[in-house]
Design a protein around this nucleic acid. Structure first.
Ligand SMILES: [Mn+2]
Ligand SMILES: [Mn+2]
Ligand SMILES: [Mn+2]
Ligand SMILES: [Mn+2]
Lengths: 217, 217
DNA sequence: CTTATAATTTAGACAAAACTAAAAATATGT
DNA sequence: ACATATTTTTAGTTTTGTCTAAATTATAAG
């Protein structure tokens, strides 16, 4: 698999969560920040390699081989993110770009040893699960802040948006993985939510509330 | 710089040690395991980018910028090799191939933090010096085993050939960086050399003797 | 000095991965 | 149902880095 093919497989894998009955050319092109014609070309190439099935005009679906390969790339990406945060003093908003490159280095020994060196982490710095060598994910129970119940207390366990902007916003408000919060009030007018942290209270907008994952404590 | 350009710069840098008055197209093509016409094309491109000067039919010489870039890639390569050996249990014959890929990941923070994490190593697992952030090498005093004096005692400080075959040969004879040896006899007939290690004696061929670096103790 | 050989460059082609523009298929609205 | 809008595919280019084959320049020998 070339670098470009690996990136497409990963993109299709992520889009399949959202579109389980087939990933459209336009969605894929948007995810890859490229044009629809390029996406078509690559989908045809990956179909030729039996990484996916493609019905023209209907969308693409990963084969077992394609899904396995995508999961492998995701495993590498997330392990490197852990390494960068735990060992090289990167913050959670700095790791993604570098991990996008590291994830393409193809050496089983490298990844297995890295996994052991990091003591077999289960979650990456954004709370996303790291598949094991066999490609199995540890399922993580989580709800999005937007659907949390008023009066209940939760622990922050993940983020959906991993953009630097969003993560820095969270940093500046002392919200990170493990942060405990209680839902004080949901404002029906604009879907903003008032939350209580350990030493402060704050109101977060709907777009924040849709990108923070919580678990009841 | 693209991946291919970085590899060519590194190759030219290494060949300049051997051919200080200019690297020939054929030598470069051989080093890069490609054809002379491809080497010519790349040399012209690198000349266009002011990474080197090229007089047609006469050879290529790195510019300051080109040399600086080559040294940067070498620094990355050797730091990753240290990481693989020190932290991920790679042996010295396994690191080169993976480091060939890792060396192309371009992030100053990544390399500076890695350097600090490894506690600023000065030599890589093959005894080669690691340039610092400014591109300065620590000069290492060493002679090749083939030119060692009979009767003197030396410490092994490096290898020239870093092929897996050669390194595994050394492993199987308990020779590594730091190994102490005394030169017992030089055989004029085939230039083989009898050496005494801590607990054994052995005879090494000329091709081994030309690839082991020593320092008098 | 002329010729043979070797090294180097040029010309033309190809594969990968992208693009633009145009054609074809599908989906939508009345 | 049918015209229109949207999505997807096809056709034809482009760039990067490679190749083969042919032409050019340098080097060596007689
Ligand atoms: Mn990431
Ligand atoms: Mn992540
Ligand atoms: Mn190496
Ligand atoms: Mn080395």
């Amino acid at each position: 698999m070339t670098l470009a093919e690996e990136n497409y497989l990963k993109a299709i894998y992520h889009l399949e969560q959202q579109f389980p009955k087939g990933v459209s050319t336009n969605a894929l092109a948007e995810e890859m920040k490229t044009k629809a014609s390029s996406a078509t070309d690559m989908v045809k190439k990956l179909a030729e390699k039996d990484m996916l099935t493609h019905i023209p005009y209907q969308g693409a679906t990963l084969s077992e081989a394609g899904r396995g390969y995508a999961v492998k790339v995701i495993r590498r990406h997330r392990l490197w993110e852990v390494f960068l945060v735990e060992k090289l003093n990167f913050s959670w908003d700095e790791v993604h770009e570098v991990a996008e490159h590291l994830e393409h280095i193809n050496s089983d020994k490298l990844i297995d040893e890295l996994d052991a060196f990091l003591e077999f982490p289960i979650y990456d710095p954004h709370g996303d699960p790291i598949p094991d060598k066999q490609g199995h994910f540890k399922h993580i129970e989580k709800i999005v802040l937007a659907k949390a119940e008023v009066g209940s207390t939760y622990k922050c366990v993940g983020v959906d948006d991993t953009s630097s902007k969003f993560l820095k916003y969270l940093d500046s408000n002392a919200i990170g993985l493990g942060t405990i919060m209680t839902i004080k009030h949901k404002e029906p007018f604009d879907n903003s939510i008032k939350i209580a942290l350990e030493h402060s209270e704050m109101v977060v907008s709907q777009s924040v509330a849709k990108n923070l994952y919580l678990k009841k404590v």
